[in-house]
Design a protein around this nucleic acid. Structure first.
Lengths: 219, 219, 219, 219
DNA sequence: GATGAATGAGCGTTCATTCAT
DNA sequence: GATGAATGAACGCTCATTCAT
């Protein structure tokens, strides 16, 4: 087998790559350590030597993918001075591009949310980080628009979650499109625009204190 | 073990209840038949006698929860003659109320999407059913608002997915809130209003042909 | 289901018929009580009420088939006054005819030989009974032929087992032929004649004290 | 458990030994993998690691025992130039000696015949191989004796089966004798002589066209 | 007399994990 | 440093068997 001497760091990256692929394809429980070791081209005890246990291996995957995703989005919004909507659009574009480029990584994050407290917490923390980013953009947008009506904290949190959920759902949908009809699949930019179209004016209205209200009570 | 005699139908319902709870908590793979049988207050062979296998048991759970969710949403939108936005709001309210009332059932549906073709198909069919409902409401809303510009089919599909993702994400968030701070958790109505605020004017604008466009290209 | 009231004796016969068929097809271990009860058209507890347990049910099958086989062979050799070879041939013919008529019963006896002491003993007892019959015929044949050299008891026993083994093997072979090429399958009479041809002159020579001996020692 | 390290080949042989013993004693279905693993002095997973499944384990046993039996008989008949009857006797002697030396192996082959197509086929192939050997000896014997009347193919097949059945039955009987009265049990040579006495002159007569015929029809 | 409802016990199989070399 | 050899624990599933009606 691969007897090639390699620095630990490289070997470890190979293991994580193999693990991410396996966890994405089969899920945490169904992916087997045998499979991962073989795909990484190393023996099983080495995997245990470097990564301790299946749980820690999964956690390492999750953390690496969380880092990569956050970095991508952050890089997208780094352009200070641009208007808030532009920055949000840049961030969404970066998100969708990352999602298309590393589907397995995103899938792992998705799966991690249903694999018990510690993993779910890691992903939740990421969501909070992203939501905070979005929130600050919204705040700047409010200032840009000259409106000062602040939204309740809880409402902002809800909106952020709605936006993140919408983005994730769209990402998954567009990946499915790319797999089934690659020629006509939407680009990251188009997907981002769709989402902006969907929500921006709603947010904008909210920030201006204009709300949708039911016209009549039913129950 | 407690061998109380019960008619088959009742026992089967108990088993499904226990199974939904177990699958929601641990996921399909990690939930064990032993655990489910014990939670249902019966012995394992009886579970197999009635529900054939773990796979069929999971499928039975999925189908039951799909039925319950669709029925709830349908009942919410049954009020003919009301304006489209009102109907959509009613449907969303029903959805969030159902989600709050049967969190395990909704979690099972969520998990089913990553457990292989047959389960994913069942949930996908449900999504299509709901999306169709929403789409028809949007069409009516467009007519109500006197705007006739039809959206491209692919764009509608994207919007539906975004809306569903946002709704699911909000449902989960609101459930989390209810668990961690029950006193101040948002009601189904409030959550539905948040989502309406988030997206309704965006949809309205789109239907009127007003689109958000990036003001300058970055990359 | 078959709610028809039937006398116990008849019900029991149905159960034994179903059990013989099942044991013949799948073997003792693999045949299931569910299957047998269903094939017999009764509920499982009734099978237990009448036949106590799987082991006793199997034993009942074995005993019934042993009785049937022995009765058939005895009936074949009942013709007193005929020459011994003729009687032996009659017995063999009756054996092969029975074997062809009740293949499942014979298969059960075959299987019983490898299912533990009590069953094997029952079949062994049958073999002894048949071997005794054969032995007496051989004795008569010796007297008919006017030769008085008695064979050692152990040798007679060996010859009887050889003959029984040969007969069983031929029966199985001819049943296989009947299944795969029914048109050209040998009749019971032909099979009996083949076996007589094969062994009669050897027995005859032995009874006359003529033996085959190795011409040179090898080891 | 005792975890003595051993090369795979050796461990595998131990497992096969234990499996042959277990399958011989209890049959394929009733023998348990737990029992086999324990008898082999290893844990169950190791048995699965090396031999894949119960079915493959049984198949491996069957193949090993088929090979050993065929090799023994072949070695017995290797003496070219000896007269055919002598060679046949040598082969039978080798067969009975093998049967006495490896009773479990032979029992496994016997049981394999009733355990479904693939196992039965393996044993059937062995029987064909042996029958071919015997047939060629008979042909040579016919030439040696100067008689040229060929037997019908089907008749030869029948005789071969009768001989094989007689040999198996004798082998089993002689093993039983050895178990119950070891001091006076017949040797392989004696048993082979008994079988030769039983059948050789019958075969000889047949080859000379002399047949036994019933003197009067009974039924 | 006959049965639907129920279970204890065990089996084949797999997997994460660790020694001994 | 890297691995072949080995295992404890658990899981999905089935079966013979028995109550309670």
């Amino acid at each position: 087998m691969g007897h090639k001497r390699m620095p630990r760091e490289v070997r470890e990256r190979h293991m994580l790559d193999a693990a991410v692929a396996a966890f994405a394809r089969h899920g945490y429980q169904a992916a087997s350590m045998d499979e991962i070791a073989e795909a990484a081209g190393v023996s099983k005890p080495l995997v245990y030597l470097y990564l301790k246990s299946k749980e820690e291996l999964f956690m390492a995957c999750v953390r690496r993918e969380v880092g990569a995703l956050v970095a991508a989005v952050r890089a997208g919004t780094r352009e200070r001075g641009a208007p808030a909507d532009q920055q949000l659009w840049n961030g969404l574009t970066a998100f969708f591009a990352h999602t298309a480029a590393r589907p397995d990584g995103v899938t792992v994050l998705h799966r991690a949310r249903t694999q018990g407290e510690p993993f779910a917490r890691e992903v939740a923390a990421m969501r909070v980080e992203v939501a905070t980013l979005v929130t600050s953009l919204l705040g700047q947008a409010a200032r840009d628009a000259g409106c000062d009506s602040a939204l309740a904290e809880r409402e902002v949190s809800g909106l952020a979650h709605a936006l993140v959920g919408a983005a994730e759902s769209l990402a998954e949908w567009s990946n499915t499109q790319a797999r089934t009809a690659p020629s006509s699949a939407p680009s990251a930019r188009e997907t981002a625009a769709t989402l902006m179209n969907f929500c921006w004016s709603g947010l904008h209205n909210l920030l201006n204190g204009e709300r949708w209200v039911p016209t009549s009570r039913v129950h």
